[in-house]
C-alpha cells in the first residue's frame, strides 16, 4: 500500500494578512508558516493507516525551499520520505499537473489531500489531479476505512453526509473528523532529519491564471451596543436601520 499525501505551506491561521510591493506580494515578515490544517488531517489519517496496515507514506509539496520546515514536520509525524517540486505554486492547474506527474511515475493506491488550501481556498486540486489520472476524486471526506481495495468513505454534503464506496486508486480531499491532528514527538523530529527529501524540477509551464494585485477588506464600522434590558430594540434596528430583516 502506497500513500501520497500532498501538503501546502501556508500562513498560520492566526496571521493578520498584509501585502507589500504596492499590494502585489504577501508580506511574509513575521508570518509563521504551517502545514495546511486540512492537509494535517490527511496526513494524520495516512499515519493511522500505516500503523494498521503497514503502508508507506510519501509527502509531496509543490513549493519553494522555504516550505521545507513544513515538509520536515510531516516526516516527523510519520511520513517515510518526501518530494518537493521546486516551483512557486501560483496556479491550481499548474500544481495539479506537478502532482499528477509524480503520481504517474509512482502509482499510489491513495492520494490524500486537504479539502482545500487555506491560502486560495480553491478546493480544486484533488479533482483536477483525479481528472488528469483518470481516477475518482472525492471531497470533503470525513471518514475513511479500507477493506482490501475498497474504500469506505463518509463525505459531507450540504445539510448532512453520505456513505460511499469506491475502489482504489482514489484521490481524496480530507477534513475532520477523519483523524485527530498529530504532533511530532522528539524521536520523530530526530529521525525526520535523515529521511529522504527529494527535490525535483517542475514539468510543464502552464499557468492559467495570475494574481494582478491584492486588496484588504474595508474595516467594519464601529459596533453599536444595545443594552441587554432593551434587547428587543435589536430586531427593530435590523428591520429599519440595517434593513436585513
Amino acid at each position: 500500500m502506497k500513500i501520497l499525501v500532498c501538503v501546502t505551506s501556508v500562513p498560520d491561521t492566526t496571521t493578520k494578512i498584509t501585502f507589500t510591493d504596492n499590494n502585489t506580494k504577501l508580506n511574509k515578515a513575521g508570518v509563521t508558516f504551517i502545514t495546511g490544517p486540512y492537509d494535517d488531517y490527511a496526513l494524520a489519517r495516512a499515519v493511522e493507516l500505516k500503523e494498521k496496515t503497514g503502508a508507506t507514506i510519501t509527502v509531496l509539496n509543490v513549493g519553494e525551499a522555504d516550505s521545507e520546515p513544513v515538509i520536515r514536520k510531516c516526516l516527523a509525524i510519520g511520513a517515510d520520505d518526501a518530494i518537493r517540486v521546486n516551483a512557486e505554486p501560483t496556479d491550481a492547474y499548474f500544481v495539479a499537473e506537478q502532482i499528477a506527474a509524480i503520481a504517474k511515475e509512482n502509482s499510489y493506491d491513495l492520494i490524500l489531500m486537504g479539502r482545500e488550501s487555506i491560502d486560495y481556498n480553491g478546493g480544486q486540486v484533488h479533482g483536477i489531479v483525479g481528472e488528469m489520472l483518470g481516477i475518482p476524486s472525492i471531497s470533503p471526506v470525513m471518514l475513511l476505512d479500507l477493506d482490501g481495495d475498497t474504500a469506505k468513505i463518509t463525505r459531507e454534503i450540504e445539510g448532512g453526509k453520505e456513505s460511499l464506496e469506491a475502489k482504489l486508486p482514489l484521490v481524496l480531499g480530507c477534513q475532520e473528523p477523519i483523524a485527530e491532528w498529530k504532533i511530532p514527538n522528539m524521536r520523530g523530529i530526530m529521525t525526520a532529519r535523515t529521511k529522504p527529501l527529494k527535490v525535483v524540477e517542475p514539468t510543464g509551464t502552464d499557468k492559467l491564471s495570475t494574481v494582478a494585485s491584492y486588496e484588504l477588506p474595508a474595516p467594519r464600522g464601529a459596533v453599536k451596543m444595545i443594552p441587554a434590558d432593551a434587547a428587543e430594540t435589536l430586531i427593530q434596528l435590523l428591520h429599519t436601520e440595517a434593513k436585513v430583516i
Partner: peptide
C-alpha cells in the same frame, strides 16, 4: 475573489 479565508481579496487575471 476572496482568499486567505476571507482575510483578503485577489484580482485574478484569467489567461486561459
Amino acid at each position: 475573489s476572496s482568499i486567505y479565508t476571507g482575510k483578503a481579496f485577489a484580482f485574478n487575471d484569467l489567461k486561459a
